[in-house]
């Protein structure tokens, strides 16, 4: 079984982002970029499936500017076998990415697609669900644990009240939650080896996908700042402030 994983290039989670002065977006020039952390979990899960013999080949997919090659290389260094980059400088929104993924899935016919549950830049939490819809496939969102057996996947999901178990037919789309696994670091020999692994580059037009954004971003602003508070010295002072100043207890 082939497994396709989608990896997004995002501003590194440790970077404190800056809103552009003209309010058109967030500053990305000269900012450290990394693979979306939830996608690292997706790559790791696919590698573990291959190590257990449940998967035969792992394809790492990305969409975006040429630099997304680096993100795919990271997935290849972790253990994916080959890469596919849909290269475009367009502003890609979840529905467009889901359509690009569908076009690649139609061609590659994987048994599973594993994606992060959300990207830490736009926080949409939608691409995996949209891909499953376009394919008419089943979906296992917010996966905490997976078990692939006999043409279906048992998915333990992280939900509002705790955990939920579902069984979904394959082929299927899975979106990863934080506790699914702990992604490995790529070793130096594997980073070297990854340089020789193939990456195919495609254009959205060649896949017949219109990636025009459906949501127009009118402006991006700083969130309102909380005014800074005070340090109290003792528990008694804290309780007094909470009772008499804030009036919350």
């Amino acid at each position: 079984m082939k497994v396709l994983v989608a990896v997004k290039r995002v501003i590194d989670y440790n970077v404190k982002i800056r809103v552009k002065a003209d309010n058109t977006g967030v500053e990305t020039a000269n900012v450290k970029m990394s693979m979306n952390p939830f996608d690292e979990i997706a790559v790791e899960e696919a590698i573990r499936m291959k190590e257990k013999g449940a998967a035969t080949e792992i394809i790492a997919f990305s969409a975006g500017p040429a630099q997304c090659q680096e993100t795919i290389r990271t997935a290849l260094a972790m253990g994916a076998d080959r890469g596919i980059l849909v290269q475009t400088d367009a502003d890609l929104q979840p529905l467009a990415v889901a359509k690009l993924l569908k076009a690649v899935v139609d061609k590659e016919q994987p048994g599973l697609v594993i994606v992060g549950k959300q990207a830490i830049d736009d926080d949409s939490n939608a691409t995996g669900q949209m891909l499953a819809a376009l394919l008419g496939w089943s979906i296992g969102t917010f996966a905490n644990k997976l078990n692939v057996a006999d043409g279906s996947v048992e998915v333990k999901r992280e939900v509002d009240g705790g955990l939920e178990n579902i069984k979904i037919k394959m082929p299927a789309v899975i979106t990863t939650d934080l506790r699914l696994n702990e992604p490995r670091y790529a070793s130096l020999p594997n980073i070297m080896k990854a340089k020789k692994k193939p990456i195919e580059t495609l254009a959205p037009d060649a896949l017949g996908v219109d990636v025009a954004p459906r949501l127009k971003t009118l402006k991006v602003e700083e969130p309102p700042k909380r005014k800074s508070g005070i340090k109290v010295k003792t528990v008694a002072e804290l309780v007094e402030k909470l009772r008499n100043e804030a009036g919350v207890i």
Binding site: A126, Q129, L131, E158
Partner: peptide, 18 residues
């Protein structure tokens, strides 16, 4: 966790953004 699971699926089936 229900809305995040269901709404994007409906959106894609309708070919609209969420």
């Amino acid at each position: 966790s229900v809305g995040k699971n269901v709404a994007p699926r409906a959106a894609a089936l309708l070919d609209v953004a969420q």
